[in-house]
């Protein structure tokens, strides 16, 4: 009897792997490096060596080389195994590279476009890098914000220090401290200045990952209104 129950449980677990998590075959081949902790509205997921984008689901595990794409008014919350956090805001595309060696996790996130808020929880000897079309950033601090368009990258450093390197024109390198914003353009110029009030508002807005739902009752039926709540 107990054997049967265990068998059923095992089957259920296998089903849940198939349905909620991901292809178990792929899981067997590659280590999970992060999970999709939250999916809001339109989020798609692309595995390595494929051109297909599939609907992403909450609780899905991500492996080295997987990509995430968000639609309008959408959010994907990516949590690495070391608890580092990426809030991939609307209309963004990011690709995650990560390797795990023992108890260390090195991470490099490629942001093709959009807005990503990050909150790093790394050890001294681990790497956390971001690559954008115009620059490379090594995170030495804890939190900040990227906004990326093909020609330009804005980086707001909230806490700690970030080393940025332009990808063209000789690869200029500069350090960006907390409370500053760096702009890296396609010509390889890096300009650093104090973060403006508007940018601070954007930064704060990018941290919102809690959602709240209301039901709007109308004379012709009900509508569900979903909002990003104040954290």
């Amino acid at each position: 009897m107990r054997m049967t129950i265990n068998l059923i449980l095992m089957l259920l677990i296998m089903c849940s792997t198939q349905l909620i998590a991901q292809n178990s075959e792929e899981a067997a081949n590659s280590k999970s490096v992060a999970i999709l902790n939250k999916v809001v509205k339109d989020v798609e997921h692309q595995k390595i060596q494929t051109d297909d984008w599939e609907e992403a689901k909450r609780g899905m595990t991500l492996q080295d080389g997987h990509s995430i794409r968000t639609g309008g008014r959408s959010l994907a919350l990516v949590t690495f195994l070391d608890k580092s956090l990426l809030r991939v805001r609307e209309n963004s595309i990011v690709k995650i590279f990560s390797s795990i060696e023992g108890t260390k996790q090195n991470k490099n996130t490629q942001i093709d476009q959009g807005v990503v808020n990050f909150d790093v929880s790394k050890q001294q000897d681990e790497e956390f890098k971001f690559t954008t079309p115009t620059g490379l950033a090594s995170i030495r601090g804890t939190s900040g914000y990227f906004e990326v368009i093909p020609d330009k990258t804005w980086l707001i450093v909230e806490e700690g220090l970030v080393e940025v390197k332009a990808l063209s024109n000789g690869g200029e390198v500069q350090n960006v401290g907390a409370g500053n914003t760096a702009e890296i353009d396609k010509e390889g110029n890096i300009s650093i200045r104090p973060t403006t009030e508007d940018e601070k508002a954007k930064l704060n807005s990018s941290k919102k990952d809690k959602t709240i739902k209301y039901i709007i009752e109308t004379s012709e039926g009900e509508y569900e209104l979903e909002l990003f709540d104040e954290n």
């Binding site: 509205k41 008014r73 959010l75 709007i216 509508y223 569900e224 209104l225 979903e226």
Partner: peptide, 19 residues
């Protein structure tokens, strides 16, 4: 108050769908 807040923060809205 909620509607007034949302008018000033439309990016807070994720979706509005029929139930």
């Amino acid at each position: 108050r909620l509607l007034d807040f949302l008018k000033n923060n439309t990016n807070t809205i994720i979706d509005l769908t029929v139930v």
